[in-house]
Design a protein around this nucleic acid. Structure first.
Lengths: 211, 211
DNA sequence: CTCCAAATACAACAAAAGGGGGATTGAATT
DNA sequence: AATTCAATCCCCCTTTTGTTGTATTTGGAG
């Protein structure tokens, strides 16, 4: 079995060497290269073709997040975990949006670090409990249930859902085994409850809630 | 130290009893009640004031997701983990939006189950690697659609924007001081570039990028 | 200068969406 | 028994959306 080939990008020499040692001394892991800045990393990593990159966020010059963006554009299959002291929403979400798959905090234990690298290599998304909770919380924010949408019956919600997916009236009718006239009637009632006149206006109300 | 007080909602008798046994036989955990349907659960849970609820999604009658929504509205501090066989995006995101903090798959091992309950009780968001990856992926913009949008001219993007806001053709024409026929022509070209046939399909491509 | 892409416009047509007026059924409630 | 409501269906009608084909102008690239 092949070793998991890891690259570390971290400007703090102590931490970098510590991570390197943890990786190299573990069975099945191999640290093939380290960088102490983002510019050298984006230059050098494509030629190394590692399995996993551990990337600091705060680096001199270019940030680790920008480095992730550039590297992911060039190597979409590359798995990158951010490893940082920042645990605010902005840093977390920007890193994930840039293309990072995992997010670790620097106070992670050696065992957790290895577990995370392995997890990442197998297509998982390792992150600490606190980080996971932030990510999950971001799904729940836009949860103020609209009174208008709440007033829809189950059937109406079902039809609105299909409507939002771009189904034609006749396709909705065929899907639900009802006549197109009934579909029209339901949609008419939905529009009345939502106070809109067209499908697009209804969509904008729905997307504001779920988007 | 107090036990973590757990409630299980699961219609399959075997699984329910199995979970109950795992919880009860572990140090520091206690299964105070089980339900085999969502209706009884939303009725009974508020009076029990448990620390953690493990909720199945597929239940007879009301779904577990609806139960989460109701329970979280009544008890915002309640920690709920979904436990299900579904690992599609729709179920995952709906559950998280409804207020679940964790998402487990039924094939979870007893150790992972206990770890998840404990994690949840300490404010974490336990989820398996596959689930975490889905959640993280939802943050990352899909590239294929953006290539299509990038191929639009400035004028076409302008029109698509108004189209997305629900403007009628004639309103777009009036806004941009061009004839409605030109609007139709532009929209036709937009649809061709986006490979769609209707406004709603186009909107779904736009919202996937900006949503 | 020539060629091309983009923006503009018109016409005729087909398809889809939406409004307004009904009506019936069945279940639940009063 | 009477009422309410959700869901179903039908007709007629207008507006909106989308397709297809053709054509002019304009600014920039080669």
């Amino acid at each position: 079995m092949e070793n998991i080939r890891v690259v570390i990008v971290e400007d703090d020499t102590d931490i970098r060497q510590s991570f390197e040692m943890i990786i190299d001394s573990a069975e099945g892991f191999e640290c093939i290269k380290t960088f102490d800045n983002a510019e050298d990393a984006v230059e050098g990593i494509p030629g190394l073709n590692p399995d996993v990159v551990i990337m600091d966020i705060h680096l001199p010059g270019m940030t680790g997040i920008d480095a992730v963006r550039i590297l992911k554009a060039e190597m979409p299959a590359l798995q990158i975990a951010m490893c940082t002291v920042y645990e605010d929403d902005e840093h977390i979400f920007n890193a994930l949006r840039a293309g990072a798959s995992g997010y670790l905090l620097k106070r992670t234990t050696p065992e957790k670090l290895l577990e995370a690298v392995s997890d990442l290599n197998q297509g998982g998304s390792p992150m600490s409990s606190e980080i996971a909770r932030r990510v999950v919380a971001s799904f729940q924010k836009p949860a103020p249930a609209s009174a208008e949408i709440a007033s829809l019956t189950a059937r109406e919600k079902e039809i609105l859902d299909l409507l939002a997916k771009g189904y034609l009236y006749k396709e909705i009718a065929a899907t639900l085994f009802i006549s197109i006239e009934t579909v029209k009637r339901h949609i008419h009632n939905i529009y009345e409850k939502l106070h809109v006149q067209t499908r697009t206006e209804a969509l904008n109300k729905v997307f504001k809630l779920h988007g």
